[in-house]
Simulated assay, not measured.
Amino acid sequence: MLVEDNAEYRQVIAPAINDELDIDLASQFGTAERALDSLQEQADSVKPDVILLDLRLPGMDGLSAIEHLRAQSNQAKIIVLTQSDHEEDVLRAISCGAAGYLLKSATLSQITDGIRTVYTGGGLLNTKLAAMIMRRLKKLLPSDERLEMLTEREVEVLSLLADGCERKSIADQLRISNATVCTHVAHIYEKLKVQNAPAAVAKAFRFGVLPTQ
Rank of each mutant, 00 (worst) to 15 (best):
residue 175 R to E: 12
residue 113 D to T: 05
residue 208 G to W: 03
residue 181 V to S: 01
residue 165 C to H: 13
residue 197 A to G: 01
residue 26 A to S: 11
residue 212 T to R: 12
residue 47 K to T: 07
residue 13 I to K: 02
residue 182 C to I: 09
residue 158 L to N: 00
residue 121 G to H: 07
residue 107 T to M: 05
residue 112 T to F: 01
residue 121 G to T: 08
residue 38 S to W: 15
residue 46 V to C: 08
residue 38 S to D: 14
residue 137 L to D: 06
residue 101 Y to T: 08
residue 112 T to G: 04
residue 141 L to H: 06
residue 195 Q to H: 06
residue 60 M to Y: 04
residue 127 T to Q: 13
residue 32 A to N: 05
residue 154 E to Q: 15
residue 11 Q to R: 14
residue 111 I to R: 07
residue 129 L to P: 06
residue 96 C to G: 10
residue 133 I to S: 02
residue 51 I to C: 01
residue 173 Q to F: 02
residue 168 K to R: 12
residue 132 M to G: 11
residue 53 L to T: 02
residue 92 R to W: 02
residue 9 Y to N: 03
residue 188 I to L: 09
residue 130 A to T: 01
residue 104 K to A: 08
residue 42 Q to Y: 07
residue 131 A to N: 12
residue 79 I to N: 00
residue 67 E to V: 15
residue 143 S to Y: 10
residue 75 Q to T: 12
residue 171 A to R: 10
residue 202 A to R: 09
residue 213 Q to V: 10
residue 2 L to E: 04
residue 95 S to K: 15
residue 98 A to R: 02
residue 160 L to T: 02
residue 132 M to N: 08
residue 3 V to P: 05
residue 63 L to C: 04
residue 173 Q to T: 12
residue 196 N to F: 03
residue 98 A to P: 01
residue 107 T to G: 07
residue 5 D to H: 08
residue 79 I to T: 01
residue 26 A to K: 05
residue 112 T to R: 10
residue 53 L to K: 01
residue 118 V to Q: 03
residue 23 I to E: 01
residue 24 D to Q: 13
residue 37 D to V: 09
residue 131 A to Q: 13
residue 173 Q to C: 05
residue 161 L to M: 03
residue 130 A to H: 12
residue 159 S to N: 10
residue 211 P to S: 13
residue 87 E to R: 04
residue 107 T to E: 06
residue 181 V to Y: 07
residue 108 L to R: 12
residue 23 I to D: 00
residue 9 Y to P: 00
residue 213 Q to H: 11
residue 18 N to S: 14
residue 164 G to H: 04
residue 130 A to L: 13
residue 20 E to P: 08
residue 72 Q to D: 12
residue 83 Q to H: 02
residue 87 E to Y: 01
residue 202 A to E: 11
residue 34 R to T: 08
residue 82 T to H: 03
residue 174 L to F: 09
residue 31 T to W: 04
residue 115 I to G: 04
residue 200 A to I: 07
residue 165 C to F: 12
residue 82 T to S: 15
residue 34 R to P: 00
residue 211 P to M: 05
residue 72 Q to A: 15
residue 99 A to T: 11
residue 191 K to E: 05
residue 192 L to I: 00
residue 7 A to S: 10
residue 35 A to C: 11
residue 115 I to F: 06
residue 49 D to H: 15
residue 184 H to K: 02
residue 38 S to Y: 15
residue 190 E to A: 13
residue 17 I to E: 09
residue 58 P to N: 11
residue 117 T to L: 15
residue 62 G to M: 04
residue 186 A to E: 11
residue 62 G to W: 01
residue 100 G to D: 03
residue 142 P to W: 05
residue 200 A to S: 11
residue 213 Q to W: 08
residue 75 Q to V: 05
residue 196 N to K: 10
residue 33 E to T: 12
residue 29 F to C: 08
residue 34 R to I: 05
residue 28 Q to W: 06
residue 88 E to M: 07
residue 167 R to G: 03
residue 120 T to E: 13
residue 55 L to V: 06
residue 211 P to A: 11
residue 75 Q to R: 14
residue 126 N to D: 15
residue 156 E to C: 02
residue 163 D to V: 00
residue 39 L to V: 11
residue 61 D to R: 05
residue 125 L to N: 02
residue 147 L to Q: 09
residue 9 Y to F: 15
